[in-house]
Design a protein around this nucleic acid. Structure first.
Lengths: 237, 237
DNA sequence: GCATATTTGTCCGTATGTATA
DNA sequence: CTATACATACGGACAAATATG
């Protein structure tokens, strides 16, 4: 049987205009070109991209399901503004899902190539001082850990969580010092998994995630005390 | 501070027409009035509910994100037909999330009233021989177990999983014999949690979920061998 | 295999209701 | 209170794909 093609099937299926519009907006949001809190007026964006409002609304819906946009009734779409509470919630989910997926492992998994590739990609990104790639590889490693559980639905949940987390990471002004220390810990988790020690990997992961959460929450409260671009706060809503 | 109102806020927020349409269709699907495989033509449903095509399509999109409807390009919306693979996937997620949420418990949780209420509701439903209520209470118990983790996102994931599971349960011709044996096991899990023995509860839950999965998969393969209303299969797709 | 009817995919213009200055 | 800007919902149009005879 010919293998390795199924994964590329997504490239073949005809994608709707809404999907393509969503792709464009998603990268804009993730790369920080639309900062959190930005309102996205249907009329303006629709005109700029040359699509109708109905099509644009469909793209908006896709992105709000990914929690990248938030919808307020009769007020429109906004780029989601994450709070410290969001961080706490996101890391609760990550501890449940990631530790749950890894913890049940009792024997060396048959295929660790993708998870291992994510780790080495991260190490290469560090060597090349490419910080965006470093963050991406980091998140991909965790996605691949969950993928070991072999559940499509868990994978989807995880990719939504990680997309939202990308948004959260924007508060970290220095991505290097944030992501770098986790590289060696990624490798440690990977080796435990490779050895079939799921329980050990889970405990390492739990501590790992607690540390990251704490760092992020600290960054959020610091930002709240000293807002960068909005002295006195964003005003009443 | 006044408490206990925040949970009811959802009742106050104004809902869009699409949301209400989705609600109507959701109960129809979950209660089996639209059997799996049914096509939902835009024109007909829109006319019956008195909403425009655009609004209806928005409702369709909401439900297909919940995996209750499946969309086929240029063919329309269909009530999702679950497969044995779906069951396996759903139970993988349940084991990860439910056991993960419960497993970390090391001390008696502060508030178990909602979970306990779900268990007693189930027992009462059994006494009253109200099988639909029995299934509902059963699912609510598991929802409440996850709620102990205190994560909005985990709660949302869980409610999506359970809505889809309701669809799956329709293959069980006899809901009583399917749900009944799990009542006593629900209580066992609850008592372990109440005692602060999260790890014990998690192992019980894991065995519980494996049994249920096995029963459902058996029912699906039996159905596939002897289709009820479509001798010779549903034909090529 | 071909022509037809039906349905969906995409988009527009407009009327109404809602929030904010 | 009024005016403005915007989102919500509707009906209709045309192209494209599918189903049917």
């Amino acid at each position: 049987m010919i293998e390795g093609l199924a994964a590329d099937r997504a490239l073949l299926v005809r994608t709707s205009t809404a999907d393509r519009v969503a792709d464009i907006l998603r990268t804009h949001i993730i790369e920080g070109r639309f900062p959190p809190g930005t309102r996205l007026p249907e009329d303006e964006i629709g005109k700029q991209l040359g699509v109708s409002r109905n099509t644009l609304r469909e793209a908006f819906r896709l992105l709000s399901h990914e929690r990248l946009l938030a919808h307020e009734l009769n007020r429109g779409m906004f780029v989601r503004e994450s709070t410290a509470e969001d961080v706490v919630d996101l890391y609760r989910v990550r501890r449940i899902v990631e530790c749950g997926a890894v913890g049940v492992i009792t024997a060396p998994p048959p295929d660790l190539t993708r998870a291992a590739a994510a780790v080495t990609d991260g190490e290469r990104a560090l060597a090349e001082e490419s910080w965006r790639a470093l963050g991406t590889a980091n998140l991909r490693f965790h996605q691949e850990l969950v993928a070991l559980a072999g559940s499509t639905r868990a994978d989807e949940l995880m990719s939504r969580v990680l997309a939202e987390l990308r948004l959260v990471f924007h508060v970290m002004v220095d991505p290097r010092t944030f992501h770098e220390p986790y590289l060696v810990r990624n490798r440690a988790v990977l080796e435990r998994v490779r050895a079939g020690d799921g329980a050990g990997a889970a405990t390492e992961l739990a501590a790992y995630l607690l540390d990251a959460e704490q760092q992020l929450v600290a960054a959020f409260t610091a930002q709240r005390r000293a807002p960068v671009d909005a002295p006195g706060g964003a005003g009443p809503r």
